[in-house]
């Protein structure tokens, strides 16, 4: 098992380099020296912004030197200074260690994604098992239709409709920000309650639209497993159906879901741009959107790279989970 773990960790290194290479390539799409034709088409870039870009990424040096210098900087999480009027270092905008955790953008995005992932798995797994064990029943069809609609529903549209219903019409829930005005003066549980109210809609939206992949996959994985011989054996020796499903079939059907969950991290993190923007949540996605709109290149690059690292980390965790869950790999 240790050998497998070691091999898996080694594989990360080329992937990390690949991520930095692609990010580096994107910098070179920027209007300016390497691709002058864009300057005419793209009036938003000013000569001085281009000059700063050149200085930051050493665009006057040979490409290989540029890449080396850039790599050296991001190894220290130095993404340069923001182009916006505050001129703060990018890393400080994403993770400001002087502020409480809840006000650090990276933490906010991380927390929301973790919660949505938890909700998705808590709903998708039982739903998938139920659909599989009651294949083609009315409830299976209702569940299937519901997750399909969730999958086809544009995140931002669902968010808008819920905001109109619960915020504008019913006044039940706050529709933007993460905290109320008087948050600082609330007692601990008051703070938790306040956060929960603000997070309810965003997490519901993110979970409902992300449910389909996991629950459909759970269903088909379960259907595949219950056809196998060891399930027949378990039934033949007289085990109650509940044990057959949950002890024998479920554990085996779960394995591919772990991998899928790991792969969905990228989609979740990327999706945070949309709902953080709609709900006005001060996370990394919102900052990313603002930076894209103002062409704050260093911040865009910083968040892109950190987002990729985060996703890679999620995939790694999924692999570790797989390892722990699958005795065949554990035994190696």
């Amino acid at each position: 098992m240790l050998a497998y773990l070691f091999k898996r960790l080694l594989e990360i290194i080329p992937t990390l380099f690949g991520i930095t290479l692609i990010s580096f390539f994107i910098i070179h799409l920027a209007p300016g020296k390497p691709t002058d034709i864009f300057t005419e088409l793209n009036p938003k870039i000013t000569p001085e912004a281009r000059e700063r870009l050149e200085k930051l990424y050493h665009l006057d040096k040979p490409v290989i030197v540029q890449y080396g210098l850039w790599l050296k900087k991001i190894a220290r999480f130095d993404f340069g200074e923001s182009f916006s009027s505050d001129h703060r270092p990018v890393i400080e905008k994403i993770w400001d260690s002087r502020k409480p955790l809840i006000e650090r953008r990276l933490f906010v995005t991380f927390m929301i994604n973790l919660l949505s992932m938890g909700v998705i798995l808590l709903v998708a797994l039982p739903l998938g098992i139920f659909s599989a064990t009651h294949q083609n029943s009315l409830w299976d069809k209702i569940a299937t239709t519901t997750v399909f609609i969730g999958f086809a529903m544009p995140t931002f549209w669902l968010a808008l409709l819920l905001m109109i219903l619960f915020g504008v019409e019913l006044h039940w829930l706050p529709i933007s920000q993460l905290k109320s005005m008087g948050y600082a003066s609330l007692p601990f549980w008051g703070k938790v309650w306040d956060l929960a109210k603000h997070l309810l809609l965003p997490i519901f939206v993110s979970a409902f639209t992300g449910l389909a992949a996991d629950s459909r996959f759970m269903r088909s994985s379960m259907l595949e497993v219950v056809r196998q011989d060891f399930v027949t054996v378990a039934r033949a020796k007289g085990l109650p159906e509940r044990l057959v499903i949950y002890r024998h079939a479920f554990r085996n059907a779960l394995l591919p879901i772990i991998t899928l969950a790991g792969l969905s991290v990228g989609g979740l993190v990327g999706g945070s741009v949309i709902f953080e923007n709609i709900f006005g949540i001060p996370g990394m996605g919102q900052l990313f959107y603002m930076s894209v709109m103002t062409r704050d290149y260093p911040t865009v690059m910083g968040i892109l790279t950190i987002g990729a690292f985060l996703t890679l980390f999620g995939n790694l965790l999924a692999d570790l989970g797989y390892m722990l869950a699958d005795p065949r790999i554990r035994a190696k």
């Binding site: 992937t15 799409l29 968040i303």
Partner: peptide
Amino acid sequence: MRFIDIMLSIPTFFLILAVIAFVG
């Protein structure tokens, strides 16, 4: 396959937005 792994570990929507930010 390594290239695919790399592409899969960059959040797609981030990547699309970043490229659009640079190329318009």
